[in-house]
Design a protein around this nucleic acid. Structure first.
Length: 264
DNA sequence: GACCAGGCCGAGC
DNA sequence: GCTCGGCATGGT
């Protein structure tokens, strides 16, 4: 099928560190979205997709192809740093991922480099996910129930180290219904963030990643070590802003689409 | 061998 | 309230 999309940088989007399961193969991108294998290829007027399903809503939703990116970047503050970033990454989008996979993946992300996160997530899917229909071996992301039922050692064997008990505890909370991931989309952002932070291994940064990459809360602004360095260098040169001051800056300066600004 | 990587948690001020 | 060490694992 074909998804029309203007100004969409597929490759940049899929390897921008928001999702960890895409692989480049023969000039296309292969991955699994909500249990469906799909192969994507950039074309001038949009994105070509090969997949078993004939429906398209799930893929348009995931890729956010209907978002008019110029309307988003137009809300950014006038600022040479941001203008440079927009020019350098034109067409970059935020995806709309499945919440559980996003939450679990970012629990596994702490103090790991992206290649290693990809490796860990890949192992988890291969070992505990289900095979999905595809021309190559492909697996779904294992459900919270599935992970909750595993031994911590099974998880550690996927090279996730000290993150294993966090992932297991969070999977147990989700499986037991102590946190309802579905319901978060109907909440205010602060309320949804407080829910996520109840999970083991989830603090402000990981919560904001999930709010932004899975739920589309565009005000969420994940501050990782790299963003922190960039903010200090670009906006607070030769000063030492407190964490509180810096947080307030991210929540006011960048406007209603701060999360997009962060990604750029 | 030392140091660091898309943090979080718990202890000690 | 804030700061700081510890936490696995793999790569420079």
């Amino acid at each position: 099928m074909f998804l029309p999309a203007r100004e969409y940088a597929l490759g940049e989007t899929l390897r921008s560190g928001q999702a960890f399961r895409w692989r480049a193969r023969e000039g296309a991108w292969e991955g699994v979205v909500r249990g469906r294998w799909v192969r994507l290829k950039q074309e001038t007027e949009g994105i070509r997709a090969w997949t078993a399903s004939r429906e398209r809503d799930w893929l348009e939703d995931y890729l956010q192809t209907r978002v008019e990116i110029e309307r988003v970047t137009a809300t950014f503050p006038q600022d040479p740093h941001l203008a440079g970033a927009v020019a350098a990454c034109s067409g970059l989008r935020l995806l709309r991922q499945e919440p559980w996979e996003c939450l679990a993946s970012f629990i596994l992300s702490s103090t790991k480099q992206i290649v290693q996160i990809q490796q860990i997530v890949g192992l988890v899917c291969e070992r505990f996910g289900d095979r999905v229909p595809a021309p190559v071996a492909a697996y779904s992301f294992p459900s919270a129930e599935r992970i909750a039922g595993l031994a911590e050692s099974d998880l550690r064997d996927c090279k996730m180290g000290f993150r294993a008990p966090y992932l297991k505890a969070t999977a147990e909370m989700v499986a037991a219904g102590e946190i309802d991931l579905e319901s978060l989309s109907n909440m205010y952002v602060e309320q949804a963030r407080a829910q996520l932070i109840k999970c083991a291994g989830v603090g402000r940064k990981i919560a904001d990643c999930v709010l932004l990459f899975a739920y589309g809360f565009q005000q969420a602004f994940p501050v990782d070590v790299w963003i922190l360095r960039a903010l200090c260098q670009l906006y607070f040169p030769r000063r030492r802003p407190s964490a509180k001051r810096l947080l307030r800056f991210t929540q006011t300066y960048f406007g209603p689409n701060a999360g997009y600004a962060q990604q750029y």
